[in-house]
Amino acid sequence: MHAYSRPEPQLAPFWRRVAVPVGLFAVVCGAFAYVGVVDPGEPGHYPVCPLYRLTGLYCPGCGGLRSAHAFVHGDLLAALRDNAPAVAAYLGFAVLWSAWMVRAARGRPLRIDLGPAQLWAAGVLLLVFTVVRNLPFGGWLHP
Rank of each mutant, 00 (worst) to 15 (best):
G123L: 07
T55A: 12
W100H: 09
G56V: 04
G23A: 12
P109H: 07
L119T: 12
L65H: 12
V20E: 14
W140D: 06
V37D: 13
L91C: 11
L141G: 15
Y46F: 12
A33G: 11
V132C: 10
Y46V: 04
A88L: 11
V18E: 02
V132N: 10
L119M: 08
L114I: 08
D82Q: 15
V124R: 03
L51E: 05
A122Y: 00
C62V: 08
A94D: 00
W97V: 13
C49W: 05
L96F: 08
P47D: 11
W100K: 02
L24V: 14
L80S: 09
A84R: 06
G36Q: 02
L24W: 02
N134T: 02
P13C: 09
N134W: 07
P109Y: 10
R103I: 07
R81W: 06
A12Q: 06
N134H: 04
R16F: 12
H69C: 03
A99V: 15
G44L: 07
F129Q: 07
W100Q: 11
P143H: 15
L125E: 01
P13Q: 03
F129C: 10
W140M: 07
V72H: 04
P7M: 03
F129K: 10
R106F: 13
A26N: 03
L114K: 06
L91M: 02
G36A: 07
R133C: 05
P47E: 07
A19P: 15
L91H: 00
R133P: 07
L135T: 13
G115K: 11
L77V: 15
F137A: 14
P47G: 09
D39H: 02
Y52N: 06
R81Q: 13
G56T: 04
R133F: 01
L54I: 01
S67R: 10
L125M: 11
R103N: 03
V95R: 00
L127C: 15
H142Y: 08
V18R: 10
L65C: 12
V87N: 04
V87E: 03
R16D: 12
C29F: 02
D75M: 12
Y58A: 05
A26Y: 00
E42R: 11
F137Y: 09
L77G: 10
G56H: 08
R81E: 08
D113A: 13
G44R: 01
D75H: 03
A86M: 12
T55N: 11
H2W: 14
R106Q: 15
P7C: 03
L51M: 13
E42L: 11
A19E: 14
G61V: 00
L57T: 05
P116Q: 01
L135R: 10
W100A: 13
P9L: 11
P21L: 06
V22L: 10
W15I: 06
L51Y: 13
A79R: 09
A84L: 09
A105D: 02
L57Y: 14
F14W: 15
F71K: 07
A26Q: 05
L51G: 01
G44I: 00
G41Y: 04
